[in-house]
């Protein structure tokens, strides 16, 4: 499969079409595996769409005690094999991107598999097929990149750790070839103030109170 995903958070308008469409994927029917997070709703309207970045050396697969997470020949890191997954949640908390979800009652981890039922047949993943702004785009590198002024980057540094991914993040800059994540302190003060407060309905619906990635069954 030559196609991959290109994520451009600058284009994301937080409409959550991708979240709704993701539920239609046949490999995880009824459950959305994509995240659209507000940086801080009180401070900015900016949102961050997160799908699985499909790491070249996936940490989630390495930390799995049941050897349930496999990477296929297309470089897609698959959802945990159902007979094997023990619901240990190692993958959920080890993933540097905060992607895998789990459900305790089902004893199951699930994650974005780039809609493998569709993408393996050349169709766009559900999220890319509905995204109105192209924040989530599926296609070949040579087809997508020339159309964009943003710079495709598929290397992240989380502290000392380099993580190379199949999915590209479109950077609105020509400086640097990687994203460096170093535990940003932006909005932390605001967060601390809210820490003890009871969450509102909206915060719950927006997933802002979910700190564990458990999906509802």
């Amino acid at each position: 499969m030559q196609e991959t995903m290109f994520v451009d958070p600058q284009r994301c308008i937080g409409c959550r079409s991708c979240v709704a469409a993701c539920r239609e994927c046949s490999t995880h029917k009824g459950y959305s595996m994509i995240f659209v997070d507000f940086f801080d709703r009180g401070e900015t309207t900016a949102t961050m769409p997160t799908i699985c970045m499909h790491c070249a050396e996936p940490t989630c697969a390495q930390v799995c005690p049941a050897d349930a997470i496999k990477q296929n020949e297309d470089g897609i890191v698959m959802t945990a094999l159902k007979p094997r997954c023990l619901d240990c949640r190692n993958c959920v908390n080890a993933c540097p991107f905060g992607v895998p979800k789990y459900n305790s009652a089902m004893h199951l981890q699930m994650k974005c598999d780039m809609c493998y039922d569709r993408s393996s047949e050349g169709l766009k993943p559900m999220c890319a097929s509905v995204c109105p702004t192209g924040a989530l785009t599926f296609g070949k590198y040579e087809d997508v990149v020339p159309l964009r002024r943003t710079k495709p980057v598929n290397i992240h540094y989380f502290g000392n750790q380099k993580v190379e991914t199949k999915v590209y993040l479109m950077m609105p800059t020509n400086q640097g070839d990687a994203v460096h994540v170093e535990g940003d302190t932006e909005f932390e003060e605001h967060l601390s103030q809210k820490a003890g407060e009871e969450a509102s309905w909206l915060e719950n619906e927006m997933g802002e109170t979910d700190h564990t990635n458990e999906f509802r069954s």
Binding site: P9, F97, V179, V181, H211, N213
Partner: peptide, 15 residues
């Protein structure tokens, strides 16, 4: 997990 996603978003936004 959520803070990991937001921190990455902030790193992107500041880059």
């Amino acid at each position: 997990p959520r803070c990991k996603r937001v921190m990455r978003g902030l790193a992107y936004a500041k880059a």
